[in-house]
Amino acid sequence: MVTLAEVARHAGVSASTVSYVLSGKRSISAVTRQRVRDSIEHLGYHPHAGARALASNRSRIIALMVPLRTDMYVPVMMEIAIAIATTAREHGYDILLLTGEEGPAAVRRVTGSGLAEAMILMDIQLEDERLPLLREGGQPAVLVGLPADSSGLTCVDLDFAATGALCAEHLAALGHRDLAVIGEAPGVYERHTGFAERTLEGLRERAARLGLRVLHRPCEGGYASLAGTLGRIFDERPGTTGFVVQNEAAVEPLLALLRQGGRAVPEDVSVVAVCPEQVAVQASVRLTSVAVPAQELGRQAVELLVAKLQGRPDEGVVLLPPELTVRDSSGPAPAVSRS
């Protein structure tokens, strides 16, 4: 096993200089720092994690809380988590992944044990039970999501309220007046999950200003569930010509059921989705969509956390602006709506 002393000899510096480069405790010139890093890479040196943590009082571990729920679209959560892990390694941190449904108990365990020196939390609810512990504990933390009260917290998220508004504006500009929102599973709204609630709030506010009528129907997303949901929508609002879908599992069942019902997309009905780019472009009809920037959310969460750990000014709430990409699923409203 390569030792720190061997790295020092190879780089032509003292052992303490190598230690300072690794810990960042003292300022080292860029030339010397690069020489040490080159020697570390050439020799394949890996500092002992336990010894490093004891010496520096830093574990170089970030705890990541990712509750994996059956009513959530797991690929998006995992894409964010992978981006977090990749960016963390670029900064010399490892990830401790917590996937249980412990909520506040997991926060207490992590902050009390000292195992991780910072935390990133996902799946944020408007009134999240974990947040009082974060505020009290003082451990550096970043939320991927936006609670109702973000005071004293660092958050990064897509601006979901603006996303909902953007979807309403797009359909209104095409002449649609009766819209239906195919939402996430009921449990997502029962927990008051931030992204779903904010999308709906933004859409409803903009629709009211534009004179649009909106129906919102949560849906489990499977074919049978969506068939019932779609039937109720057309029973209640036969003139519905615009759909906003925020449920990846509902995309293909919706397109199939519209075809079976004799409604062509986009000639009779327009569909706009809030979903990952991959889901939009691989659908049977390429979807007009607002992409969920999973990789960017993960990357920025780590960058914000590293800034906090280094004592740089806190940016508070960072909301990524939504971008709507027009594809094949949206078009002008039909001249005469179905009755």
Rank of each mutant, 00 (worst) to 15 (best):
L179S: 00
R37D: 14
V74M: 13
Q300N: 13
L215D: 12
R206I: 00
R198W: 05
L166S: 03
T240K: 00
L43R: 04
P321H: 08
A227Q: 14
Q295A: 15
E102H: 14
E102P: 11
L257H: 03
I182D: 01
P104Y: 05
E184S: 12
L320M: 11
S27D: 15
R9I: 04
V306G: 06
Q260S: 13
A162E: 10
V285R: 09
V107W: 01
L158K: 00
V265H: 01
Q310L: 11
V279A: 11
V302W: 01
I84T: 02
A81C: 09
L226E: 00
R338V: 03
S14Q: 09
A294M: 06
I95Y: 07
A88V: 07
V156G: 03
V292L: 15
E303H: 11
R191H: 10
L320Y: 06
L166F: 09
G202V: 07
A264C: 09
L171G: 07
G137F: 10
H42G: 12
S337H: 09
R259A: 15
V156Q: 09
Q34F: 12
A161M: 12
C275P: 02
V13L: 05
V18A: 04
E267Y: 04
G222M: 10
G261W: 05
L22S: 07
E248I: 05
L257G: 01
E277P: 03
I40L: 08
A207R: 00
C275L: 06
A148K: 14
G222T: 12
S29G: 15
S289H: 15
R26K: 15
A51D: 08
L96Q: 06
V317N: 08
V31R: 15
R58I: 01
T163E: 06
A11T: 02
H216Y: 14
R130Q: 01
A8H: 06
A165H: 02
R237H: 14
A106L: 12
G112Y: 11
S270H: 02
